[in-house]
Design a binder for these strands. Structure first.
Length: 193
DNA sequence: CGCGTTTGACCTGCGC
DNA sequence: GCGCAGGTCAAACGCG
């Protein structure tokens, strides 16, 4: 992937939900990186486990977010309706195999958490095999939103963070709304004249 | 006090 | 069936 020309964002991208555009990523200095060469990174990261859908890696493999990251995208449309919905435990403990779109990408950043405008709550952290760094699990804090993301730093290139999103936000980006609300009010005010 | 993080336990899926 | 690895829960804790 060449990553130089502007690449239309993927419709499945969590940064581009169908109904709204999020502002450009506000990453800490030096985070928006030169395009990564995935061939250097892919061998180490376990994309299959990261994306852990059963779809093959090659299914949807393409660039996204311009030069910000190299990425892997796939949507595992859970074809088989799961018969194992027997979540007799507290609530629905083990989620059925996700039928939500998953999207992974890499960023070069000193911070594990990139500010994508949404609010996330960490609900777990696990050390994973073949990786020095643990994988962190986050959920969107919006009460109606079930989007999750996983964040993991590569062990052979510690400047690279792999973020995997699962699902699409069903609510507006809060930071964007914060930014836009005053503007909208002003526009409404001006439009009266 | 509310919200977010930490962390150990628990659960499921999968390979052998 | 067993063990391992990954994913989630929830109590405890910290912070503003």
């Amino acid at each position: 992937m060449e990553g130089q020309e502007p690449i239309p964002p993927s419709p499945l991208s969590p940064f581009n939900p169908p109904y709204l555009l999020t502002p450009t990523l506000s990453l800490p200095s030096s985070s928006l990186n030169p395009p990564l060469d995935p061939s250097q990174v892919l061998p180490e990261i376990d994309w299959v486990s990261l994306l852990s859908g059963h779809a093959g890696l090659g299914d949807n493999y393409g660039p996204m977010m311009g030069s910000a990251a190299s990425s892997v995208m796939l949507s595992d449309n859970g074809t088989e309706e799961d018969k194992r919905n027997n979540d007799k435990r507290k609530g629905s403990r083990m989620m059925k195999k996700a039928s939500r779109p998953r999207f992974a990408f890499q960023t070069r950043s000193a911070d594990d958490i990139l500010d994508d405008g949404y609010r996330w709550r960490k609900y777990g952290q696990k050390s994973v095999k073949n990786s020095v760094y643990p994988r962190s699990y986050y959920r969107c804090t919006h009460h109606t939103c079930i989007v999750k993301k996983q964040v993991q730093r590569l062990s052979n290139d510690t400047s690279i963070v792999v973020t995997t999103y699962e699902g699409i936000h069903n609510h507006p980006c809060e930071k964007l709304m914060e930014t836009l609300t005053p503007l909208l009010k002003q526009m409404q005010f001006l439009s009266r004249f």
